[in-house]
Design a protein around this nucleic acid. Structure first.
Lengths: 347, 347
DNA sequence: ATACAATAGGATACCGGTAACACGGGAGGA
DNA sequence: TCCTCCCGTGTTACCGGTATCCTATTGTAT
């Protein structure tokens, strides 16, 4: 009589053994019905299926995963979910991997590589099938951990010659360079650059390099880079503040922001301050967010393949998990300069 | 000599037994060093820690989870990640639960409850500690599954008297009602309503109800509701298209869109068509996205607590997992009407 | 010197599946 | 009639941890 003590509660409590007992078979046969139905006699299969339905059986993947040594999980670490940027990348990953039955595990690191390292440690304990990281800035410990662990790792949002494993993105250096060249081409000369904190984030650093290189190549002197504080949330007000500071400096005729959000805040501030954009001041952003298409004047910006990076990362992972060799560990998806009204200077 | 065959590869391959052998103890002692270090002699602890470090040991949480019957995972299903709305909610959840050592599993259902049902099935196989859903529209099978399964479930983005388990959100009906009242108060009379597809989504349905109720209460006749197609991605162009259709109808003096994205597209379309907002046409949106603060005229909208719903959901889950009883299974976080230029009619 | 408790660590069983192999019985060929 | 082979199912062991119980040793009070 103790043999069927748990029969009353459905779902979570039901095990394969209980289903088996009910169907008058062993759990191995139940397992076969789920994994290799063709190997089971149709009548038996029918009985087992009925038993599963009656008991509301839900397989426990944890057990199978333990056996297989793998979890069917792809983990992704993004700096933040608060802006659609990285969420787009996640959507791309999710789209692709879910078709292969893999799930997406997400954490956000708040742009801090020490936090990221801890998250990686904790994630690896879950034995993910693969890991997607944002950017190249990881602690040494994190890199070592990942290299030793041996699962596919995809870095995103940048290109690099020496990724931990694979990489898909675009060149932030070239993108910032191209935008700076575009501003110069439009007739701006004293171009300020407003950037995120560079020490914790190679994307910001590379963009600064691209900007400085372009200025130098054009024989222009670059005003000091204006760095927004890490704690300054990515919001328009931060861009507005930058404008108020930069207008003190003489002769600035354009400002290149590394986020559209900042740039849009700047445009609004200019409107209030009576600074005409683009004739008195050119303004450019980065990322091609919707806000930039909607402000007036519309915002010149760099379009980046946020979603496409996610898809590509997903495909690279699937290929590797399927044992296929990739033509290259590096995928440069490029970027586009979108020239709009905010830099369209009347010549 | 077969006893140490796997010693060469670090990381993924290393098991507790290998660490134990190296430290000259049993795996039970290694386990204690990780779970209850105070119960282990400091010298032994030291030796074990050294062995773990040398072998690059990474615990396998799958095994522990199997034992515990729980995975340390909170799963969340959102309609899409493509707009920051739901990503904000995820960030809120993640913030809160990660402090309790729980991880976030994400999937997106593309607003389809049949897809959602499949995702729930697949998610339950991973034995999540809790589940967060968006909205109330779930298949019957999905509800039954969840009720039987017994884990904490939080529905979000709506209020309701009869949630599957817990719910945190705001009333879409009241929000749409309040906005409609606000439009009427501003002097608009023939107010059109542009909505997402209502059959698959109770949020859309409730908003329509709120709108219709407010119109009726004011003794106004409501023009037919304009429904955008499910496949019409949430993008400004869809709003622009709606304007082109609605201007055919005589006398419309305001349009209430259920997304800021649409509303902003409408504002841009009006600019092109030479329709003055707000004097010829009032326009209101929903969600309070950044775009709405940036267009000109700035957009009147309904602000919803996207991130706060996530945080609250996280807290409810943690409370329940800790065995604490909640004061209520329902949390109404409210909304705010943000009145801006797009409905500020010169009286 | 004896008894008893506290401390440290080992032995065992178990979580819920699945791979690998074993086995009985019927079909087909020599 | 006997040997094989195949089909359908059962048996066993194992995945990598952890709870529980047990033993050995040391310390302490009587």
């Amino acid at each position: 009589m103790a043999a069927r003590e748990k029969t009353s509660r459905l779902g979570a409590g039901t095990t394969m053994a209980q289903v088996a007992e009910r169907a008058g078979v062993t759990k191995m046969t139940v397992s076969r019905v789920l994994r290799h139905p063709e190997k089971v006699n149709p009548e038996t299969r029918e009985r087992v299926s009925a038993a599963m339905a009656e008991l509301g059986y839900v397989a426990n993947r944890l057990a199978g995963s333990l056996n297989a040594g793998t979890s069917g999980l792809v983990a992704a670490i993004v700096p933040t979910l608060r802006h659609s940027l990285f969420a787009d990348t996640l959507e791309g990953i999710s789209d692709v991997i879910s078709q292969a039955g893999l799930g997406l595990f997400v954490s956000s690191s708040d742009y801090r590589s020490d936090v990221e390292e801890n998250q990686i440690r904790s994630i690896l304990e879950r034995r993910p099938d693969a890991l997607v990281l944002t950017g190249l800035t990881h602690t040494k410990a994190a890199r070592d951990l990942l290299r030793n662990f041996g699962i596919p790792v995809v870095e995103t949002w940048e290109t690099d010659d020496d990724p931990v494993d694979m990489i898909v993105g675009y060149s932030n250096r070239e993108a910032a360079h191209a935008m700076t060249v575009e501003l110069i081409r439009s007739g701006y000369r004293r171009i300020a650059f407003v950037n995120g904190p560079m020490e914790s984030n190679e994307r910001a650093r590379h963009r600064a390099e691209g900007y400085l290189a372009a200025m130098q190549e054009a024989g222009l002197s670059a005003p000091p880079i204006h760095v927004v504080h890490h704690d300054a949330v990515i919001q328009p007000e931060t861009g507005a503040k930058a404008i108020r500071v930069l207008r003190q400096q003489p002769g600035i005729d354009a400002v290149f922001f590394t986020s559209d959000v900042f740039a849009v805040g700047a445009i609004l501030a200019c409107r209030e301050l009576g600074i005409d954009v683009p004739s008195q001041l050119g303004i450019a952003g980065f990322h091609d967010l919707e806000v930039g298409r909607v402000v007036s004047p519309t915002l010149t910006t760099v379009q980046v393949p946020a979603m496409e990076m996610g898809r590509k990362a997903g495909h690279m992972i699937l290929a590797r998990l399927a044992g296929r060799k990739l033509p290259s560990r590096r995928q440069d998806l490029g970027f586009s300069i979108i020239s709009r009204e905010s830099t369209r200077r009347g010549h």
